[in-house]
Design a protein around this nucleic acid. Structure first.
Lengths: 147, 147
DNA sequence: TATCAGATGATAATCATTATCACAAGATTC
DNA sequence: GAATCTTGTGATAATGATTATCATCTGATA
């Protein structure tokens, strides 16, 4: 691991009161040292090369911990359950990052996406989708009530 | 079911050589007759009120059939596996709708999202994410080779 | 170094989704 | 409308991803 990455890792752990374990270090490295959007399984395979006895459960737990702490992000706020969209009119989605609810947003509520320059060669564009991420009304209300 | 919806359903089934069964009709209705982005489980619960003996597997199979035929769409092309994003710089995603691969796209490749009018009241905006959906280079190549 | 909260590894449990297969229901033909 | 054939359905087992449990171990702090 590069010194720089290592220091950042220590700092982040301290900041979030997390023990800087071997396993966490390798998991963090596996994610940060190469570009990509890996699944827990992929991270597991990668880390196992250095720590053959690591458990898949440890990978899962730490990815959750990291995401929760804000050290990493999940690519999609709605993995885990398959959702069907029957709205045939063009539209966007409001996604609540807390309860994962999805609401339609009228297509015209947002201006068109403008492409500056080119997409990577070979990629055949089908469409742009805009996800408006945030906290929905219900979750905001629930939060306010708590405090 | 409204006559209009019913006719559309029959037409779509004929168009795609699908038997217009009872179950399919109710599933289609459950999706189309009310706004929302339902999970298979939710559809199942809804349809069961009319067809108590329907099986969850039937719901799954028909949702797949409908999506495959283009009668419905899936909300997210990458539900199903949890992916981690370690790229802290703002960026967008290129998503291949065939192989579901995800690639980063430089933030400046796309113009900013412009909000016209207001978001629904109570929604606390965090950020806009643009997904550029299409067919990636590898999948395009594989397709070309086949024909 | 001793202590202890928190982390790990092994594995069982859960949950969503898919596969299998015997039986039933639409579509088509007469 | 009945016969036939194809396709769809329901019950349930199988799979795959994720989470829970718990005994043991390790990093952090004194």
């Amino acid at each position: 691991m590069r010194r720089e990455t290592y220091n950042e890792f220590r700092r982040l752990c301290q900041e979030h009161s997390l023990a800087a374990t071997h396993q966490r270090q390798k998991i963090y490295e596996a994610l940060v040292s190469r570009p990509g959007h890996y699944s827990p399984e992929e991270i597991y395979e990668q880390v196992k090369q250095d720590l053959p006895s690591i458990s898949l459960a440890t990978v899962y737990k730490n990815l959750k911990t990291f995401v929760h702490a804000g050290m990493l992000r999940e690519v999609s706020p709605h993995h885990g359950s398959w959702r069907i969209d029957a709205n045939h009119h063009p539209h966007h989605h409001l996604v609540c990052t807390r309860c994962r609810s999805i609401t339609d947003l009228d297509f015209d509520s947002l201006g068109p996406v403008k492409l500056r320059g080119k997409l990577p060669s070979g990629f055949r564009l089908e469409k742009f989708t805009i996800e408006v991420q945030g906290i929905c009304k219900a979750c905001t209300a629930a939060e306010t009530k708590q405090h």
